[in-house]
């Protein structure tokens, strides 16, 4: 019994290291895109950029991190209903964030199209980030199905932990994208 527990703990540690290595490699990718913004445009920022909308979708994404955290905390204590409810909240907030980005894109195409320097950086950064949010939404949706069948328990919820951590990572990336695109001038 002790060896099984040790084996499970060892496996969990390996899983966590693997996930953090993925975050590190993805950070290099986003880091390169962020550097490109300063390399191509310096600190120039178009006056037409909707900073209020950027702030609003940032707040939505931060709130989704809170609900994702609550979902993980709930499943770690066997509160499955609270877990499912918070996963649904997180997904809804993620969709709202995507809608906000879509709105920003529609404005962006008019004021700074991708053919312009800032537009190139703006659409590349927000586009790749939105793709990450989209994949996160798919992962969250997958969580709900096995979660309903009581698959995750306080002793075994790595699937939840991994996906929630990924969601937080996407939030962390946005914490750097928002000031880089919307605020620096």
């Amino acid at each position: 019994m002790i060896s099984v527990s040790r084996e499970a703990r060892h496996r969990l540690s390996i899983n966590r290291v693997g996930l953090w290595l993925f975050f590190l490699s993805d950070s290099f990718f986003f880091g390169a895109l962020l550097v490109t913004r300063y390399y191509l445009q310096g600190v120039h920022r178009p006056s037409d950029l909707n900073q209020t909308l950027g702030f609003a979708i940032s707040a939505i994404l931060l709130l989704s991190s809170l609900t994702a955290y609550s979902a993980e905390t709930a499943i770690a204590r066997g509160e499955e209903r609270l877990f499912r409810r918070n996963i649904v909240f997180t997904s809804v907030l993620g969709v709202l964030f995507m809608a906000g980005v879509g709105l920003e894109w529609s404005e962006g195409f008019r004021h700074f199209p991708p053919s312009q320097g800032f537009g190139t950086v703006f659409f590349a950064l927000t586009g790749f980030h939105a793709f990450h949010v989209f994949t996160g939404l798919i992962a969250l949706a997958l969580l709900l199905f096995p979660g309903q069948k009581g698959r995750f328990t306080p002793d075994n919820y790595w699937g939840v932990e991994g996906i929630v951590k990924y969601w937080h990572f996407v939030d962390v990336v946005w914490l750097f994208i928002f000031p880089t695109l919307y605020l620096v001038s």
Binding site: Q51, Y69, F169, D171, L175, F176, P179, L183, S185
Partner: peptide, 29 residues
């Protein structure tokens, strides 16, 4: 800071982004 301070604001923004991300990395992740 981003909407009102137009000179040297980037340094404050960088610090704020690092502090915010650390909060998420430590308490949420």
């Amino acid at each position: 800071v981003g909407t009102r301070i137009h000179s040297g604001g980037w340094a404050y923004l960088a610090i704020l982004a690092i502090v915010s991300s650390w909060l998420v990395l430590y308490f949420f992740m």
